[in-house]
Nucleic acid binder design. Structure first.
Lengths: 348, 348
DNA sequence: TTGTACGCGTTATCAT
DNA sequence: ATGATAACGCGTACAA
């Protein structure tokens, strides 16, 4: 007979636990009077077990709160059941719709989503990519990021499926789903021109994508014979305050501006606040158009006209691409332009 | 109007690579003419190597783009160098500041942060916790979440250090850093009363924490002999539109209300918009106070008076606690109340 | 239907 | 200073 010299536990409702460490598959096997393999099957192929045995094992798993070790199974299977999303910042709510739908779609297929932040710092980007690759995710989704040369090389060497999103670049690492920022710039300029505006302004972030939009917007105005557009750049990330200051700057420089395109809804909200503050009627004296069609756009005063980007669709497509790849299925369209539309409300 | 420029597809570009699979430590060893152990040491204990050998190995690592497999090392070491953060939503109020600082502090110690979303769905919570525990993180940070019974049991059985944040509950699973929601309710009521208000309203979310704040706020008003406060509940998550509708509801029910406490800055921004829309002067005719002191609070019109919560400090403390635990150091204060303050601006 | 042997890639330990 | 060995926990392949 064995006399355990161990300690006593006075915690209420503490399940019986053999030791101080979390249980592993072998512990469950012992408790259920079966081999480790039978426990493994109870989890992954329950239909192959005798119902009676299955129940015994399940009871043991539940009572011991056994949770399989994904490091071990991932190593064995070379599948981590994990997908990583890399983005510049969580602060801008622009990406949330995308993340949400990506997460949801991946969960349906038994994948978990891991989120990594680069913080707009290109120098740290390669380090983050390295850290992500270490976990051997089954796929990587890059959101609104341009990978550095080193980052691209790492991603390619890793053989991990990569989906770049948000930006419809010409040189995709692997797969791509996004929209054309230059088409957006043109479309908004055309929208203003069609509404009779001739003095255009723009409040914009100062990253590479934003510059593409600005250039297209300015070029469309020029092509229509309009005077040069006035641009105010704001530092990333986009904030309400940035929108206020951007609009104030434009109006100070050129008070005759009657239409302003803001490169995010947050900036546009700031522009609305500033216009209100300066006593300008929107849209009668000043038209404002945003970008993103975020949740709040419909509830501003006046409701915001904005460029709608279907983040949900991007997330869904990115998830589909990665899932197809991991199943070795062909990806019919590895490069997708999801386009955009202009949601017409009252602000411009 | 739609600007979908169509869907393009082309064959994925096949990158140049010697082999068809990512290289492992053995491949690097072969290339550098050393054993696998020497490569491992070059990465983890470079000082123990002959400088000449070290350089050879490093060159091989760089040229092959070798990235260690964290599943294998995590399995071997029982340390995943991973910390998980669980939260209801990314959209949330001050969560972003917290996440940012948590991520930053953990990176300093060589940990990576994994983010999991529950989406306010208590039913899925246990599943997410199970999915997280599977990865054997070195710590788990719960942000603004109340774990279900099953979730708590899983966390305890896992033996993983857990820090609950945001909410200063009485029954912590393990460690805790937060603030008292009931103290906040009292403080804001006292603030309004000190400013001469007697007709108080509140726009609030409808989760458990929010109800605690509401109860404390209402009780403080009652204790001061004020008429009963009018409360409008809005569904999660907090939105600008919810704030507008909440305030409209309160004013419709009791037009004599002169001060409204909103349980997030986003709701407060909506209240400001609605007040403006209804032609109410803030703060002369209606005082508005928010919660969170988010980035935009200082730039609203008028600037928002709000309850400041130091998310950065919470993240820092949570990281410290987890790091101490993984080093088997004692955690001097496993339960911390970081308090709050009222940032006085012009809105109330 | 259930069990045994082996290997996934890495690193601590011990040996040289 | 460097190498050989074993073990981390799990699941496939095969055997019973």
């Amino acid at each position: 007979m064995d006399y355990d010299s161990g300690t006593f536990s006075h915690l209420p409702h503490q399940p019986v636990q053999a030791s101080n460490r979390p249980s592993k598959i072998q512990d469950v096997a012992r408790a259920a009077g079966v081999s480790a393999m039978t426990v493994s099957r109870a989890i992954n192929h329950p239909e192959r077990l005798n119902p009676e045995t299955l129940q015994r094992v399940r009871d043991a798993i539940a009572s011991m709160r056994y949770v399989p070790n994904a490091l071990a199974s991932g190593l064995r299977l070379s599948r981590a059941r994990l997908v990583a999303a890399l983005l510049p910042t969580l602060v801008g709510p622009v990406f949330q719709e995308l993340i949400q739908s990506l997460d949801h779609a991946l969960n349906q297929h038994g994948y978990q989503l891991m989120i990594g932040r680069t913080g707009y710092d290109a120098a740290q980007e390669a380090d983050l990519i390295r850290a992500i690759i270490q976990r051997r995710p089954d796929g990587i989704v890059m959101i609104g990021m341009a990978a550095s040369e080193e980052g691209r090389a790492l991603l390619q060497a890793s053989r991990i499926p990569v989906v770049e999103t948000w930006d419809l670049t010409d040189s995709a690492i692997d797969m791509l789903v996004g929209f054309s920022h230059s088409a957006i710039g043109h479309a908004v300029a055309a929208h203003f021109i069609a509404n009779g505006h001739r003095q255009l302004g723009m409040v914009s972030g100062d990253d590479a994508r934003a510059r593409v939009r600005v250039a297209a917007y300015a070029q469309a105005a020029q092509a229509a014979g309009l005077p040069e557009v006035t641009v105010a750049y704001t530092p990333a990330p986009s904030t309400l305050g940035g929108g206020r200051r951007g609009l104030a700057e434009i109006l100070a420089e050129r008070p005759e501006v009657t239409a302003v395109f803001c490169s995010s809804d947050t900036l546009a909200l700031g522009a609305l606040v500033e216009a209100q503050h300066q006593g300008l009627q929107v849209p009668q004296q000043l038209a404002v158009v945003g970008l993103g069609d975020q949740e709040f756009a419909k509830d501003t005063d006046p409701p915001l006209t904005t460029v709608r980007l279907d983040g949900t669709r991007i997330g869904q497509l990115a998830a589909d691409m990665i899932v197809a790849r991991t199943l070795d299925q062909p990806v019919d369209a590895p490069r997708v332009d999801i386009g955009f539309s202009i949601t017409q409300r009252s602000s411009g």
